[in-house]
């Protein structure tokens, strides 16, 4: 059984305006959830609250293990979830070192780091750029590297905030393929925030719409 994310009756208010209102949802399947909504609808806020990067003004967000026990919000839980920002957040280092980061801080041995990073870079089509400084990548390549850096640590939850923003058609298609392949592996629950309807329909198993602070189910695969 996978880790479950429970969002219970959360509220988030910005400058007197409720962005999220009494919102509840359970993410319990190793699928791709897509959260749609126009700019300013609160997608990023919701994603950050789910990823424990922000706290709601009211309500609770917690993770349950396979025994339905609530996990404490400590480093062990933080290491099971990861978040890819729209700006990616690139370290001034090689592509290899960027992707290896999560493994290094977890104390993996060098041999395993090399094997896993190379496998993932090959998977996202960046193996030929492994020695290149990551700051020199194009926007699309940087997004792919961000995804590679997230999946290499095999987290239970991956949050992707606008993965196709500032990305050309070709790279968007590559990102779609990568996400669909990740889904097949069934290692992680992926939650994506996007306003790209076409992209959402291509990759999403469960499409949710954030409207007036509420999460509405559009379809379920």
């Amino acid at each position: 059984m996978a880790l479950e994310l429970i969002v219970s009756k959360i509220w988030k208010i910005y400058e007197g305006r409720p962005v999220l209102r009494d919102l509840s949802f359970v993410f319990d399947r190793k699928r791709i959830y897509v959260i749609m909504g126009p700019n300013g609808s609160g997608k990023t806020t919701f994603l950050k609250i789910c990823a424990l990067l922000e706290v709601p003004d009211k309500g609770k967000v917690f993770y349950l293990n396979s025994d339905k026990k609530r996990l404490p919000k400590d480093i062990n839980l933080f290491r099971k979830i990861t978040y890819v920002f729209p700006e990616v957040g690139i370290f001034n280092a090689s592509v290899f070192d960027n992707v290896a980061y999560g493994l290094k801080i977890r104390g993996f041995k060098k041999k395993e780091i090399v094997a896993r990073v190379e496998e993932v870079l090959d998977f996202v089509g960046l193996i030929h750029k492994k020695k290149q400084n990551a700051l020199t990548l194009s926007s699309g390549e940087a997004k792919r590297m961000g995804i590679a850096r997230a999946i290499v640590i095999e987290p239970e939850f991956i949050f992707l905030d606008e993965p196709t923003a500032f990305v050309d058609m070709k790279n968007t298609e590559i990102i779609e393929k990568i996400l669909l392949q990740i889904k097949e592996r069934e290692k992680s629950t992926i939650i994506i925030a996007t306003h790209d309807t076409y992209f959402a329909s291509k990759v999403g198993d469960i499409i949710l719409k954030l409207e007036n602070g509420k999460l509405l189910t559009e379809n379920s695969a």
Binding site: Y83, F85, V88, I105
Partner: peptide, 9 residues
């Protein structure tokens, strides 16, 4: 934030 979300202490 990136370091934190990748599991850094």
């Amino acid at each position: 934030l990136t370091a934190k979300t990748l599991g850094a202490t």
